[in-house]
Amino acid sequence: MASQGTKRSYEQMETDGERQNATEIRASVGKMIGGIGRFYIQMCTELKLSDYEGRLIQNSLTIERMVLSAFDERRNKYLEEHPSAGKDPKKTGGPIYRRVNGKWMRELILYDKEEIRRIWRQANNGDDATAGLTHMMIWHSNLNDATYQRTRALVRTGMDPRMCSLMQGSTLPRRSGAAGAAVKGVGTMVMELVRMIKRGINDRNFWRGENGRKTRIAYERMCNILKGKFQTAAQKAMMDQVRESRNPGNAEFEDLTFLARSALILRGSVAHKSCLPACVYGPAVASGYDFEREGYSLVGIDPFRLLQNSQVYSLIRPNENPAHKSQLVWMACHSAAFEDLRVLSFIKGTKVLPRGKLSTRGVQIASNENMETMESSTLELRSRYWAIRTRSGGNTNQQRASAGQISIQPTFSVQRNLPFDRTTIMAAFNGNTEGRTSDMRTEIIRMMESARPEDVSFQGRGVFELSDEKAASPIVPSFDMSNEGSYFFGDNAEEYDN
């Protein structure tokens, strides 16, 4: 783990906690998980779902989305002020799938948001429990990260689609708070800032007046979040320049895209947490497990152990491969979309394939898809080993990566060399080191050039047997250095459309 220093740990961010010791953190995270579980059980009762239907990941996603929508204050306010045809701002819903006479049927349900809020609060001892809501947002974000390569979004903001390893959390809503900021990748933060800068260039009043003052505060806050992700002084200094700019424009845009590229080699610290679907927490609570009393951590053995003992089902389209669908969801559960496939294969105990080789589309089923041909199958979400999630980018030494994705962002704290394609990355730096950030740029390029592919990161860190909950005997895996390590390699994943 990167030293926490003055930073709060993510469990504290996750639970809005002030400084807590490890036991208190485990208890408050457990409380959050228990609340999600209780809410899910109650919703299944309301909807009269069978046990099997309640364990269907598509039903879980609909129920999670309903509660997130019920608590989305800004959108609710907007919907009330701008009524649109056929949208009731006070209601929320989605597809629920039921097994009827041996076939899967889709039923569109509609609930009062007020009623959903009441059920959620009741499951969370009367609190709004925003930490639990954020947790579900991060699960949705991790699922998107594993399912889609955001080529269009990258290109629109002047970045290269091969930089997708920097895009963790790119679909997280803005209201996801400190826990959300911690899991956002460098590219995601750059993209958010670039969008602001572009608006400022096109709209003279963007930075002016009372609204402009708020915009400015948001801009500086985002700059500080991004600065905190960088691990070298030169990158941090460049972020200070971007933040202090009187009138952010093209120079800042250039600096930010430069920094994003540099992060492929001088990786930023991005938190990883295993956020599971509500249909995993519900049955665990129903079986009598007391998360608050037992304590829970999002970055240790607990999620692995929970998945070892969970039964989750998914709808499967006619030509999809259930094992591939399982891999997709497994990666999402562990926030591992940008991790090295060699490491993932070792931990999972079966070969993890790149996205383009998977015969599976996303987990969600569109409303126009034919239910007649839908089957369902068990998702295999178990693992051979477990490993500690990392909050750091690993040290800054790398190795060759593949054509589709030119770097990785480690999820697990496991000893290995970190793949990246130096030639491709360095070719993108057209040696432009003039301007006010020239000395920093020169320094950053120097550090990137001296990074050695064969150097090892996370020295001495290994994986653990599932029986080793105290992480007492690390097993340090050895990897084939020459092997392909990137998930979005030469990829044809669908595009994420909101």
Rank of each mutant, 00 (worst) to 15 (best):
T424E: 02
P410W: 02
S335C: 14
A284E: 00
I225Q: 15
T378R: 15
E443M: 12
K470N: 10
Q415W: 03
S457Q: 12
N250L: 09
T373H: 02
P283K: 03
A123Q: 03
F258E: 13
V476N: 00
T437I: 14
A427Y: 03
Y385M: 10
A337Y: 09
R246Y: 03
N247H: 01
G393N: 13
F71W: 05
R175L: 04
L56N: 08
I425K: 01
V183Q: 02
L379Y: 01
Y10F: 14
M371F: 07
F458W: 13
R26Y: 04
D145Q: 03
L226N: 08
M447A: 06
A251T: 07
I63N: 05
G485Q: 10
S478T: 11
V194L: 13
L49V: 15
V312R: 00
P161T: 15
M239V: 15
M167C: 06
N202V: 03
E14S: 08
Q399C: 05
T147M: 06
N250H: 01
N142S: 13
E64Y: 07
A233G: 10
L276H: 01
N250Q: 05
S176I: 00
N321Y: 14
M448A: 10
A237P: 04
R55V: 09
I444V: 14
G185Q: 10
A131E: 00
F429H: 07
F39N: 01
G431F: 08
R267Q: 06
A178Q: 10
Q399W: 01
Q415N: 14
A218K: 06
P410N: 04
F488W: 10
V194N: 03
L108W: 07
I138A: 03
P161G: 10
R55D: 10
I365L: 11
S359T: 15
L307H: 08
R317A: 03
L341G: 01
D16G: 11
V456R: 10
R65N: 14
A263F: 04
N321S: 08
E244T: 08
R195C: 06
G268V: 14
E252Q: 14
L133W: 01
Y385G: 09
K91I: 08
M191Y: 02
E449F: 05
A472T: 15
A233M: 06
A233T: 15
L56E: 04
F346Y: 09
